[in-house]
């Protein structure tokens, strides 16, 4: 099945799962009608909860989904959908208070009925989820703590909201209506259980060993992993995996990294990781022989997904590993397709893979265009950020037919997307992967 067809099927399923819980409430005998505003408030609450529930699907790292949609777009969608869910759920009590101001006293948990307090707790838990996600970096919340907060508060938000609904018992009076909503909650919790229990168990049975660890230019390390007691997995060049290093796969410390090795070679996996954050700054200290758990492959950022007459790879700094995976795979497959690699870095000393790229130029129909912010003396290459003029200077006349892959930090991706629009590249030919997506 084509990727576009799969995307449409997923979207149809998404809107069905989103609307079905609301429609269920309107089938069969309904409770006595009340004022419009009160019914609207209740409907918004139900809608918000249905949208919250659907959020379990995009974030569950389900491979049929991650292999179809770009993961950074999925997270982009997830955060904004959660904001919409929060707005809908917040509108539920606000509308009630607006049309019945005396109901504000229900905010006092000491005097309010427990079913109302449950609703309030759910709303506050959702607010905490959103605040810790949007302001994780300004609040200096570590990635692990943020994930722990997410893992705990997500089921709390949903279960407590469900108890609130069952406690109010207005629309869910028929057993089968209760059954649908409780069934949905069970499915949502099942996805969490899959992520936290069955998936780690499967990873535990399929460990990898670190067989080599070597420093690269640009303060990066290449880790070479070999499957231990199993065959490993096949992947498309450019895909990524979640790595758990020196930790239990049941813990919070897994991190997404692009696979850098060729998809056409052995079942060894290579990851090239720059020393950037807390976790990655100690990546070179991981001893050879250590067990690593690899949850993958994920992602659709690949020449195998988006074929074309030629490829343009545009990377900023440590956005280069997926590009290397694609170039190494093209070399191993003896590809004759033309390729261009625009590679932005602060300075020459920080260019990871620079020697190997020179070799790849001999083996492929490849042009490598280095763009340095602080070039050395006598540098005759490109300088500054990758922009429309630079792209025009190096790309052929049929540049609108080529397929583009961009990977790097979000500001760099945004700037390159604008430059590609400027030179008339159709958006459908452009694919992006943000390396700091979570």
């Amino acid at each position: 099945m084509k990727a576009a067809t799969k995307q449409w099927l997923w979207l149809l399923l998404y809107f069905f799962v989103l609307l079905a819980p609301l429609i269920v409430l309107l089938i069969g005998p309904r409770p006595a009608p009340r004022e419009f505003w009160r019914e609207l408030s209740v409907a918004l609450g139900f809608s918000g909860l249905a949208l919250m529930g659907v959020q379990f699907i995009p974030t569950a790292r389900l491979r049929p989904l991650t292999n179809v949609f770009p993961m950074d777009d999925v997270y982009y969608f997830h955060l904004r959908a959660a904001l919409i869910a929060f707005a809908l759920v917040l509108a539920h009590p606000l509308i009630l208070f607006l049309f019945n101001p005396t109901a504000v006293r229900l905010l006092n948990p000491l005097t309010a009925p427990p079913r109302i307090t449950l609703g309030l707790v759910s709303l506050l838990a959702l607010a905490a989820l959103i605040v810790t996600s949007i302001f994780r970096k300004p609040l200096k919340i570590s990635y692990e703590l943020w994930r722990l907060v997410h893992v705990i508060l997500t089921p709390v938000t949903i279960i407590v909201a469900m108890l609130h609904m069952l406690g109010v018992d207005y629309y869910l009076s028929l057993p089968w209506q209760r059954g649908v909503w409780i069934g949905l909650t069970v499915v949502w919790m099942g996805i969490i259980a899959h992520n936290r229990l069955t998936k780690p168990l499967r990873l535990l049975r399929r460990p990898y060993r670190l067989v080599d660890s070597k420093p690269e230019t640009g303060r990066a390390w290449t880790l070479v992993l070999r499957p231990d007691g199993h065959e490993g997995f096949r992947f498309m060049p450019g895909q990524f995996a979640w790595l758990t290093i020196q930790r239990s796969p049941f813990g919070m410390r897994s991190h997404p990294f692009s696979i850098a090795s060729s998809a056409a070679s052995s079942n060894q996996l290579q990851f090239t990781i720059a020393e950037l954050g807390d976790f990655t700054s100690r990546i070179g200290e991981v001893p050879v022989g250590e067990v690593v758990y690899v949850d993958g492959p994920h992602g659709s950022f690949s020449i195998d997904r988006y074929d074309g007459p030629g490829y343009v790879f545009i990377a900023g700094g440590i956005g280069s590993p997926p590009m290397l995976s694609m170039l190494r795979t093209m070399r191993d497959r003896r590809s004759h397709k033309p390729a261009w690699f625009f590679y932005g870095n602060p300075e020459w000393e920080s260019v990871t893979f620079r020697e190997e790229l020179e070799t790849l130029k001999q083996e492929l129909d490849l042009q490598v265009i280095h763009a340095l912010e602080r070039p050395p003396a006598q540098w005759d290459g490109e300088t500054g950020f990758i922009d429309a003029d630079m792209l025009r200077r190096h790309l052929p006349d049929n540049r609108n037919e080529l397929v583009y892959f961009i990977c790097g930090p979000q500001p760099m991706i945004a700037a390159v997307l604008a430059a590609l629009r400027q030179i008339g590249v159709p958006p459908n030919n452009v694919h992006t992967e943000q390396y700091d997506m979570v």
Partner: peptide, 30 residues
């Protein structure tokens, strides 16, 4: 699917839920 498509799905989600909530309230209110 790209960022533009993701934006479209977000807007469709918002509009679908707002409209269906309105329809729900209209159907159910007196």
């Amino acid at each position: 699917m790209g960022r533009t498509h993701a934006r479209v799905v977000i807007w469709l989600t918002f509009l679908t839920l707002m409209l269906s909530s309105l329809a729900f309230a209209l159907l159910q209110s007196r």
